[in-house]
Design a protein around this nucleic acid. Sequence first.
DNA 1: GTTATTGCAAATTATTTGCACTTGG
DNA 2: CCAAGTGCAAATAATTTGCAATAAC
Lengths: 144, 144
Amino acid sequence: MSCEEIFLEKLRKRGFRLTPQREIVLSILHQIDSMASVEEIFEKVQDISTAIDISTVYRTLDLLQEFNLVISTDLGDGHQDYKLVGAEDPHLHLVCRQCGAVIGTEMGPGSSLAAYYLENYGFRVDFDFLSFPGLCKNCQPQGQ
Amino acid sequence: MSCEEIFLEKLRKRGFRLTPQREIVLSILHQIDSMASVEEIFEKVQDISTAIDISTVYRTLDLLQEFNLVISTDLGDGHQDYKLVGAEDPHLHLVCRQCGAVIGTEMGPGSSLAAYYLENYGFRVDFDFLSFPGLCKNCQPQGQ
DNA sequence: GTTATTGCAAATTATTTGCACTTGG
DNA sequence: CCAAGTGCAAATAATTTGCAATAAC
């Protein structure tokens, strides 16, 4: 099932509507690989229609996030970045704090970590779609 | 070595100065167990001296964070929360998104996770002082 | 003394909201 | 139709900044 279909289904289930604005934001997100700021998303949205307001983009991103179609992270620069994760299974993201690259990985070792904390601390970590900050291969200092 | 000593040393090393304002902010952080907002920290600071400005609190928290004496997280409510981690070894925090409780844990399983990602993706996760969002024992819904 | 630091007030940035108008179902 | 959604402009919240006065070393 495609993102669009999932989106439509979840909207319907809650009595929400599919508007052109929502379709456009979703289509833009499909074009972006790494995390993107609202500003960046908004600019691309405006290439399609200048009539769409940034508040609508915010509202749509919130909605998509609630539907688990989008994740967001604060990379430490004072605003949220967003990325479409679509119809995929829960997984982890490695987000480079230098270049913003996003590497999606299976839950694998994350699952054991989650189990460990649940067992030992009774704490249920929200690992689904979690992002880990760090440095990707290319952005690591030479020596290390 | 106490937090205060580490702080002083790191300040000196960079030609920075130890001011009463900085000492007060650090002392307040010692009184707080869980993550706290700047507003909360600022209020307590004002109990000691009303002359201290909130911008100074921000500046001091930034400094402490740079020195790895303080961590910050965005718990998803639109602002950063801070916590003193002091002279401790790198470790992980489990932060409850319901009640804000912070559970400090050893790096243990985090280290293997870091090693895993380095090996398989060449990605160096910033695990030091990282926080995992989730639900603590008390805040979990009954059935689960 | 010199220069980092502060308090203040104003600016900036990110995000949210109230509301009259529009539109999807 | 009519409730949900939108654009707009204004509000809010969090954080940052410029600068003259102050104080640490």
